[in-house]
Design a protein around this nucleic acid. Structure first.
Lengths: 193, 193
DNA sequence: GCCACACCATACGGTAGCGTATGGGTGTGA
DNA sequence: TCACACCCATACGCTACCGTATGGTGTGGC
């Protein structure tokens, strides 16, 4: 009984806890002692599993990169029509970002030498995916690419707004829907049918 | 002669240096001792002008808020046509953000209790301005607002991309122009003439 | 020419975090 | 059951920073 678990910890437990710390406190919140306390352990445990803090950050980022690539695939793969797939992707990904703040938190430390390459890879994959979607809809490659970058920019800016100044975003469900319609209409204008 | 200046420092000198630190190291870089070293002074000077670090951060943010409101006004006020004004605003503000990283840096600490209200005010003002521009172009108020929010989202996302994954953005001047055209075309589609 | 005050340097104590050293406990295979 | 690898706690030194205490210096007003 009792809350304290006598179970031993694995390296993965630490990585998971580190990722959770990133999500709600940014990269700076990945601190060995606080996380140890959160896990009900001490640094002694940590330094057995990892060489140093850098290795922990690396493990957490590896975890995030893997998860964030799986996620995109899972999102809307069932939907045959690419246009509705784009809409579903948008709604899903915006909602996901408001639940899980990891992406915004990592964006906040895009400069960091360990974060930068991960963020670049994930971003390029995502932009590539959205661009492919526009191509599938029927836009010529260069246009599709530009629309894809624009769509991803709008997404990034949106989650940033939701985080920094939610008051400017529509609050009611109806307004949010109208906003999404407006955005999709703009991004898809001139689409071949 | 010599580099070392015997001049005394003002509170404003400190605020300016703090803002510069934010620009190239984020809020965490606002540390008394490093800035003192950078100014060729010591903490003794600082704690004469300010009560503590919090007051310094406050002064720096105040400076930024003032500067960032003046800036928008100055940008494109001479241009009579609102559509070209929008285009000029876009190009100006994107280029400004790549020179001066303060906005991205502050966005990275949008959670911070001192930063949050400043960021909200500035964001609301800017979104309001762009929305007004769309209204002036001829869109009905609700549509103009949505287009304004969308345009600002695209802007935010763009400068974020330029910072975190510049490889996905167009590199040549011609491609950048094509990208801007595409974005404006999307944002302005269905505009009354 | 001197005094007072604005301005600043130096020295100190305190905190949070990183990393190391060292020893103790615990399970498991021989 | 004994040894040894595995896992962890405690204690320590180190660094970077915040804030305070205290004394020193230059300069304007008289």
């Amino acid at each position: 009984m009792g809350v304290t678990q006598t179970r031993r910890l694995s390296a993965d437990d630490w990585a998971q806890a580190a990722l959770a710390s990133i999500a709600d406190g940014g990269l700076a919140a990945v601190a060995v002692e606080p996380i140890a306390a959160r896990l009900g352990a001490t640094k002694g445990s940590f330094y057995w599993h990892f060489a140093n803090r850098e290795a922990l950050v690396d493990a957490a980022l590896r975890r995030w990169e893997a998860a964030s690539t799986d996620e995109v695939i899972e999102a809307a793969q069932t939907e045959p029509d690419p246009t509705t797939r784009l809409r579903r992707l948008f709604t899903h990904v915006v909602e996901a970002a408001s639940r899980d703040r990891t992406e915004v938190a990592l964006l906040a430390t895009a400069d960091h030498p360990q974060v930068a390459p991960v963020l670049q890879r994930v971003t390029e994959r995502r932009v590539g995916y959205v661009s492919a979607l526009f191509a599938e809809i029927g836009f010529p490659p260069e246009v599709a690419r530009r629309r894809g970058v624009l769509a991803f920019s709008a997404y990034l800016g949106h989650i940033q707004l939701a985080h920094a100044a939610p008051a400017v975003l529509p609050s009611s469900a109806a307004d949010r829907r109208a906003h999404l319609d407006e955005a999709l209409q703009a991004l898809l204008h001139g689409a071949p049918h």
